[in-house]
Design a protein around this nucleic acid. Structure first.
Length: 936
RNA sequence: GCGGCGGUGGCGAAAUUGGUAGACGCACUACUUUGAGGUGGUAGCGCCUGAAAAGGUGUGGGAGUUCGAAUCUCCUCUGCCGCACCA
């Protein structure tokens, strides 16, 4: 029998499917393990070798856990709603439902070849009404919740109504601060509409008028994480700020818990740091500055500016105040003399796009209001300016400026010639600000002589004592915009009557997405759904919400649905989610660091608070697979001709660099014949060769069709088989690492599988395996491998595990070991990596040796072998020995030395005995392969 | 600017976390199998000196801790990623 991977892979994939081998049952006496991939967006551009990387990793882990006796949930589905699917549908002129379906089919076909062990019976799609019914239902639960800051959890809105009925919102009952205050009596006088309006301010999913990121080209608003430097993440279109009524998720209520939760979860440092950064927690104080506005007639003092600062210790260094241009007090503080200047500046700020602002960060601009603020500690009056470097959205939209300690404040002071107070002595050079906390304060009255960082708590306490401010924790994170003016998303289960939002009754879910023929935007920034009057207008003058939910709605909870995918009366039964519980390992790219991963963590916390699930963090461990980059090849065409010069000759001419299809290049050598046939324009190409060859240029770039550097997994599978492909992808390097694709090395892995095959069948395809009992040396090889594979697989170090397989197979080849007692356990070890070969060989052997192994139908039902440590002791010529980490000597051993022999020789060695000096030896530790540490 | 992670042969990378650096694979060289190509097999392969034996040197650079450092500490150079007017 020869290693015919094409035949055996097809055969076993077929068989596994027929026997529903990977379908997993809820509940089992076995321990559970939930291994999940981030579900893909069915985008329509075919797969390249980078896509399956994470799926291979998770598949190996899932298969490994099955062999270890776990009941493993390893599902797959599609994130089929969202902007890109709609854009793709627009470009191709087909309905998104159709393109999505097609894309899913081709995606699935490509995946099938690789031999994954997904339980396809649990497949879900976010665009399926049976699925989004529950996305809508969950939205309503969030809509019907508020955040109790005292109990630190979400609660039902009815409970808040009870609180208002009894106490109004003035007493401290945990609800968030509100702009309007009312007593219980006042609350009861409100009519239903007014009460709903008030409640809207407390809901975890709420509609409000706010500044949104509006993308004209996409015709929709975007969430903060979908905007990168003033451009849309998707498509790179300009994004502007715009006031609109939008739905939001009150993720800010969860800021602290999202931060704390990171400590309980196994994510990479980089990932945690990105999330912390996004949440952007800072500790400081809010402080009141009374303002003085001198007009010709009188002096006004009713106003006060509240600023936020993390550096209260610098209070005596405040030389001026700055408000955001949009700040509500600007008008009141502007004196008649300054009015025109302030107006002009505000106009200027309005005229600038977000993009211009970000591009010109360094430029100092601003205007003086004419008013002054009184430093509450020193009584010093400082001028009040407005400037766009102060952001309305962060803190209180106003700052106390300390030019000696903050570079931006310093630049501003310099520009407007404001005198700078030095509060840090020689630490300030007058040339630039020094933001240190380690300086001794000067010019700071009661703080003089105190180290800045020690002064912070002193000032904080004083602020609270004097009643001029409070300690305050601030977050950069904003509430998440939750509505999109697009078609291809979940419709909101919300209807309006006279502008008041009402939830759609549960019996009316799902609110199905109606079919449309055109996707053009509706009136007034509304989405395409607004163009269907028959759908929008309901009986009783109710009107539907025409926005749809964003892409992350469906993906925020999908991991829960896999536990119970066919449930049509619950999003998932509590029993099922309790059983499968947290995702044990979640595999996916880093690109969802601040989007999906934060939203799904938030939804999980809400559901936990509402008692619907029993865990607070969705993902116990996160593995971020690296990107596989493409290795592009280039040819150099002499400008204006059809002549191509080889790489090292190109500098002699003026050339254009052109991408060339990487599959036509062997190493760096171009197949000129194939090149001529590639495109009609190259049919007449001439070549300037070096040593008879055309040498290409090379660069590492993102893998993409347009760069002609994509490698299709199917081509490799056709040539080498799925097992080789799987192992090679893992052998390239650590899963987490990004690396350029290089097809060259795949031969080595393929060779390994052929060697493995030859342990069972010789060149004449005769079975050579025997049921002879193995000797100690052979057992040692096996047990060493078992130990290594178990350790490496458990910690996702698949590249080193594969190296260990190679060593093992080489060693067994060297000692001509063909014994089933060694080979069958080895096959089980390999099964997660190369399931098809392992199954084929295992079945062939067990079929022939009936009595012993027939109990298992498939290699998947077998047990991961256990190792015995007595076989792991290394044989060596010489053992270096160190005593108590102090000195080192070398003891010669013969090759057949056992553990006992080694111990005996160590203890009896003269030099060692001299060092131990009669003290008893506590233990002998074997470090590295051939070294011993003796502890006394 | 701030933050995170790295830097080891010609290349991808190992090093059981302080214990013989470079496992394993690719590429390369020689021999061998074969009519030839491919395949398979054997051996060599960090760098320098040397015919060899052997010796010296070696984990971006510099210092330090240690019997012992790729691994720990400090300084420095450099690459990648993330954030960025956040008070």
């Amino acid at each position: 029998m020869e290693y015919n991977f094409r035949k055996i892979e097809k055969l076993w994939q077929q068989k596994w499917k027929e026997e529903k081998l990977y379908e997993v049952k809820n509940f089992s006496s076995k321990p559970k393990c939930y291994v999940l991939d981030m579900f893909p967006y069915p985008s329509g551009v075919g797969l390249h070798v980078g896509h399956p990387l994470g799926y291979i990793a998770s598949d190996i882990y899932a298969r490994y856990k099955r062999l270890k006796g776990f009941n493993v949930l390893h599902p797959m589905g599609y994130d089929s709603f969202g902007l890109p699917a709609e854009q793709y549908a627009l470009e191709t002129g087909q309905h998104p439902a159709v393109t999505t379906e097609n894309n899913i089919t081709s995606f699935r076909e490509q995946l099938e070849n690789i031999g994954f062990s997904f339980d396809w019976s649990r497949e879900i799609r976010t665009s399926d009404p049976a699925y989004y019914k529950w996305t809508q239902w969950l939205f309503l639960q969030i809509f019907n919740s508020w955040y109790d800051e005292k109990e630190n959890k979400a609660r039902k809105i009815e409970e808040l109504v009870k609180i208002f009925d009894a106490h109004g919102n003035t007493s401290d009952t945990g609800q968030q601060k509100s702009k309007i205050n009312f007593t219980a009596a006042e609350w009861k006088t409100y009519d239903a509409a007014k009460q709903l309006d008030v409640l809207m301010q407390y809901r975890l999913a709420y509609a409000a008028l706010g500044e949104v990121n509006w993308c004209e080209a996409l015709g929709t608003v975007l969430a903060n994480d979908e905007v990168i430097n003033g451009f849309s993440e998707r498509g790179g279109h300009p994004v502007v700020k715009r006031k609109m009524r939008q739905w939001y998720l009150r993720i800010t209520a969860y800021a602290e818990r999202l931060l704390k939760g990171l400590e309980t979860v196994d994510f990479s440092d980089a990932m945690k740091e990105m999330q912390r950064n996004w949440i952007g927690r800072s500790e400081g104080a809010e402080m009141k500055f009374v303002t003085l506005t001198r007009t010709i007639e009188n002096l006004q003092t009713e106003n006060s500016i509240v600023v936020y600062t993390t550096r209260p210790d610098t209070i005596f260094g405040v030389d001026f105040m700055v408000l955001a241009p949009e700040h509500e007090l600007v008008e009141a503080l502007t004196t008649t003399a300054q009015e025109s200047k302030i107006r002009a500046y505000q106009e200027y700020v309005k005229s600038r796009s977000e993009r211009e602002r970000l591009a010109e960060v360094k430029q100092v601009t601003g205007a003086f209001t004419g008013s002054y603020a009184v430093n509450p500690f020193s009584g010093v009056e400082v001028p009040i300016y407005i400037s766009e470097y102060v952001l309305a959205a962060y803190g209180t939209g106003a700052i106390m400026a300390v030019p000696s300690g903050d570079q931006r404040d310093f630049d501003f002071a310099k520009h407007f010639r404001i005198p700078v107070t030095n509060i840090i002595g020689d630490q300030f050079d007058g040339e630039e600000a020094n933001p240190t906390k380690d300086a001794i304060l000067t010019n700071s009255r009661f703080l003089d002589g105190i180290m800045m960082k020690d002064a912070i708590p002193i000032v904080l306490q004083k602020i609270e004592e004097l009643g001029i401010g409070v300690r305050k924790i601030n977050y950069k994170m904003r509430d998440a915009g939750f509505s999109r003016q697009r078609y291809w998303g979940e419709p909101f289960p919300i209807v309006y009557k006279q502008g008041i939002a009402y939830p759609v009754g549960e019996g009316h879910l799902p609110v199905e997405l109606p079919h449309v023929d055109k996707y053009s935007a509706g009136p007034e920034g509304e989405g395409p759904l607004a163009n269907i009057p028959g759908w929008v207008h309901l009986a009783g003058s109710f009107k539907r919400e025409t926005n749809t939910m964003p892409g992350y709605a469906g993906s925020s909870w999908y991991f829960l649905r896999y536990a119970d995918p066919d449930n049509d009366h619950e999003f998932a039964s509590k029993k099922a989610t309790d059983y499968w519980n947290q995702v044990d390992v979640y595999v996916g790219g880093t690109e969802h660091a601040v989007g999906h991963l934060l939203y799904s963590r938030m939804w999980t916390k809400i559901l936990y608070d509402l008692g619907m699930i029993s865990f607070e963090e969705p993902f116990k461990k996160l593995v971020n697979q690296g990107m596989i980059q493409g290795s592009s090849r280039f040819v150099y065409r002499i400008s204006g001709t059809n002549r191509f010069v080889s790489f090292n000759l190109k500098d002699k001419f003026e050339t254009d660099k052109l991408h060339v299809e990487v599959n036509m290049v062997d190493g760096m050598i171009l197949d000129t014949g194939a090149f001529k046939k590639w495109k009609p324009e190259f049919a007449t190409a001439e070549f300037e060769l070096e040593n008879g060859k055309y040498i290409c240029g090379a660069e590492v770039e993102k893998m993409s069709k347009s760069k002609f550097n994509t490698i299709n997994p199917n081509d490799l599978i056709e040539k080498y088989g799925a097992d080789t492909f799987r192992m090679y992808e893992m052998f390239l390097g650590p899963v987490e690492q990004s690396k350029p694709w290089d097809t060259k090395g795949i031969e080595g892995v393929h060779r390994f599988l052929k060697k493995l095959w030859r342990l069972f069948y010789d060149e004449q395809q005769r079975a050579v395996w025997t049921t002879e009992k193995p000797n100690d040396q052979e057992l040692k090889i096996l047990h060493k491998t078992i130990k290594k594979i178990e350790e490496d697989t458990a910690r996702f170090s698949f590249n080193t595990a594969i190296s260990a397989f190679m060593v093992c197979v080489n060693e067994l080849g060297d000692c001509k070991c063909h014994k089933t007692d060694i080979l069958l356990p080895l096959l089980i070890l390999i099964a997660p990596y190369a399931p098809h070969v392992a199954e084929e060989l295992y079945q062939a052997v067990t079929a022939a040796t009936k009595e012993k192994f027939l109990s298992s139908n498939s290699i998947l039902d077998s047990q991961f072998p256990s190792f015995e440590s007595k076989y792991l002791i290394e044989y060596a010529k010489a053992y270096p020995v160190s005593v108590n980490g102090k000195m080192r000597t070398t003891i010669s051993m013969d090759l057949a030395a056992t553990q006992e022999d080694v111990e005996k020789m160590v203890l009896e060695n003269e030099v060692i005995q001299k060092w131990t000096d009669g003290k008893p030896v506590k233990k002998i530790i074997y470090v590295r392969n051939k070294m011993v540490n003796v502890v006394i």
